[in-house]
Design a protein around this nucleic acid. Structure first.
Lengths: 215, 215
DNA sequence: ATCTGTGAAGTGGTTCACAGCC
DNA sequence: GGCTGTGAACCACTTCACAGAT
């Protein structure tokens, strides 16, 4: 695994690294072997020196006078991000969204295996969804220990998100992907990422409205 | 509609406004009528003066010595964001994700109506999904004009995302919510927001890995 | 007395510009 | 000659600290 040179890495850098991988994978699929920071920057909608600086946090992955070998750069970045391995996850909240995610093949494809599904609704417990038996949330702790899980996914309604988070933290999980439309509070050593595409729709709404007002 | 005082609004401010609304709505549901910036900041995981500054871009919504009235603040922020109205959207790419979104009731509930579904696969054209007939992507332009649509949602595979974007831009759309794992290029006056929860999983992966390495 | 709104100070991320290497 | 890697300059957002309002 690749280790960073520097102590602190900007959050924005990590987000961009994920973008770079995405774009590079598409470039590779289209048959591009080598690319320099300038065209890659254009494809990613960032500044070229931004890319070079982001990568410089972790090492020297390019060849001066040449550029970056696409395939090897993908490998380097995925190694930096720690996604060149398998991760085991559990999902809490088997509603519509939860079911959709459990059935989403892309998770396994990208190395994020959902190995447990939990809900506190007695009517759902015991049900089988996408090959997993829905288990009572109370049993999260034992199961997480058994299954060697590090990431939890919350897909509960907002009012139950914090309780789900508490269970996950108690079970020793290290990262939470929260789809519930609510903020959650967790200890410092647990990482939380929020996914809410309405936030993005709000941003579009604002930009379109504001843009129009300035004409 | 609320209009900003200042010329340029930081992107981060808009993202936070969406968070504030989310948290305030949950507070309202729990029966909180008034809140000051300090506890609101805690609930949103930001600095209190950050909130006050964010709001100050758009007006004075608080009462000195008292705080903010939750209900009225929600109304002010949604007005600022332009989400206190209905938006009409179309979706391009009726795959698994597209279908899930078409069936997702939350869109209508939050004022974002999906009024058209498009795909270029002849086998899907004519099919009915969630009360909408799937139409050939070629007919996007006429339909968008008829239906008075301003936002497009892309749920195609990555290799077809740019083409979908081109069709949407050509049809005169002003904003795009892109779920496809690919960057797209559009004219300056069209806004794009990207949704990719694998990026968030990558961020978790990095943080957990990096955190562990520093012990 | 309390809490907002805001200029000023501080901080951190981005961009520039060029030295270093292929 | 071309492109990376990187210190320095720049810029923007964040935080502080306090004046102003109730």
């Amino acid at each position: 695994m690749q280790t960073p040179k520097s102590e602190h890495i900007p959050r924005a850098t990590i987000q961009r690294l994920a973008v770079y991988v995405q774009v590079l994978e598409n470039l590779l699929r289209e048959g591009t072997d080598v690319i320099s920071s300038e065209p890659l920057a254009k494809a990613c909608n960032v500044n070229a020196s931004q890319i070079r600086k982001d990568l410089a946090y972790f090492g020297e992955f390019g060849v001066r006078g040449v550029g970056y070998y696409v395939k090897s750069l993908i490998e380097s970045i995925t190694s930096v991000l720690g996604v060149n391995r398998e991760w085991r996850t559990v999902l809490v909240g088997v509603g519509n969204l939860g079911r959709a995610l459990l059935n989403h093949k892309e998770f396994k494809l990208r190395g994020f295996h959902i190995v447990g599904a939990f809900d506190c609704d007695p009517f759902k417990i015991g049900e089988e969804v996408s090959g997993l038996e829905v288990v009572c949330t109370k049993r999260l702790k034992e199961k997480v220990a058994d299954l060697d899980v590090e990431i939890g996914i919350i897909t509960t309604p907002p009012e139950r998100a914090q309780r789900a988070a508490n269970h996950l933290v108690d079970a020793g999980i290290k990262g939470i992907l929260n789809f519930a439309p609510a903020r959650i509070t967790v200890p410092d050593d647990v990482f939380v990422e929020y996914v809410d595409f309405f936030h993005h729709l709000y941003a579009l709404s604002f930009n379109i409205t504001f843009d129009r007002a300035n004409r």
